[in-house]
């Protein structure tokens, strides 16, 4: 029982981390069709600046300041990348992805050049490095911090999307960008906004990731990014809540499988992804197996029907 509680809370904490990364990815992808490979790089750089800040100031104030600095770093990086690099390639999705791919290779190398290739220890204040007894399990405090922050972000982003004018533009842009433009609204501003939001969330995720793992390395962001992609696919682009639920399930499956299936949580996540992809009703109805069979035999009619 206590193991289950620990696993669940750890899984939720991990899911919270995934959610912070994936929500920005999903918004950027939904609005601009850009698969942002540089997202992990934002996270990494933010994590390093936060580490410097927390190490210099120290204690709880240091951590709070680090969170602010990390978030600001992510935000600033994302805005610069959007304005300087992505904007010039407007409408050329493949090139935009390629630029973010280049950044995802260059930025970790830059971080490695500046701060070295070895993993560093993230200074976690004592108040956050202890454990709390929950139903007989000793659960690290930072899990609760992660879950709380993710919940706050979830509600904040939901409020932003549903109650503000720019949220409305972003939602409308995800649905039909051409129509929004046709209505005379400048979508490019929304692009910058979404990129900034995503970058800030990635920066925050970098700080929280540092606390969660207790360490940071130049390739930390890149490895987290892969799972964020998985979360985005599983969640689809339905709503920010669907991204949150998807992040939750990925985090939980990963933790449970890590414990009960001999450390193969990451593989379990990929199987989950494959299952979801196959089961998702793409066109028509029927069981996943039936759809697969139809896909492999009579895709001609299906494809023709899909384009009609």
């Amino acid at each position: 029982m206590d193991t289950l509680v620990l696993l669940t809370l750890t899984g939720l904490g991990l899911g919270a981390l995934y959610f912070l990364i994936a929500s920005g990815l999903a918004l950027i992808f939904g609005l601009m069709d850009v698969l942002n490979f540089a997202h992990g790089a934002f996270l990494t750089v933010a994590c390093y600046t936060a580490w410097r800040t927390a190490g210099t100031v120290g204690g709880i104030p240091g951590l709070l300041l680090a969170a602010v600095v990390g978030t600001a770093t992510g935000l600033a990086l994302a805005v610069v990348v959007e304005l300087v690099l992505i904007r010039r390639l407007y409408g050329r999705i493949k090139e935009q992805i390629l630029v973010t791919v280049g950044l995802s290779l260059a930025v970790p190398a830059l971080v490695q050049t500046v701060w070295g290739a070895d993993a560093r220890t993230f200074p976690v204040p004592d108040a956050l490095s202890g454990t709390v007894g929950v139903l007989g399990a000793r659960v690290p405090v930072n899990r609760f911090l992660l879950i709380a922050v993710a919940l706050l972000v979830l509600f904040g982003v939901r409020l932003f999307l549903s109650r503000t004018r720019y949220g409305l533009i972003v939602r409308a842009g995800v649905e039909d960008r051409a129509m929004v433009t046709a209505l005379g609204i400048d979508v490019t501003r929304a692009f910058t906004l979404v990129f900034a939001l995503g970058g800030a969330l990635a920066g925050l995720a970098g700080v929280l990731g540092g606390i969660y793992f207790g360490s940071l390395s130049p390739h930390q962001g890149t490895s987290l990014l892969v799972f964020a992609f998985v979360v985005v696919i599983i969640g689809g682009l339905v709503s920010i809540t669907s991204v949150a639920l998807s992040a939750l399930s990925v985090g939980l499956v990963q933790q449970y499988a890590n414990y009960y299936a001999g450390g193969y949580g990451d593989l379990a996540v990929v199987f989950l992804l494959a299952a979801v992809v196959l089961a998702r009703p793409a066109a028509g109805t029927g069981s996943p197996l039936g759809r697969l069979r139809r896909a492999l035999t009579a895709h001609r009619t299906h494809a023709a029907g899909g384009t009609a």
């Binding site: 069709d33 992805i97 892969v226 998985v230 985005v232 696919i233 990929v270 992804l273 992809v277 697969l292």
Partner: peptide, 19 residues
Amino acid sequence: RTLALGSVGFAMVTLAFAQ
């Protein structure tokens, strides 16, 4: 089969398998 998300779905699923 994942092209519900457009060609990017394919990119992400292949990435997950490789990971």
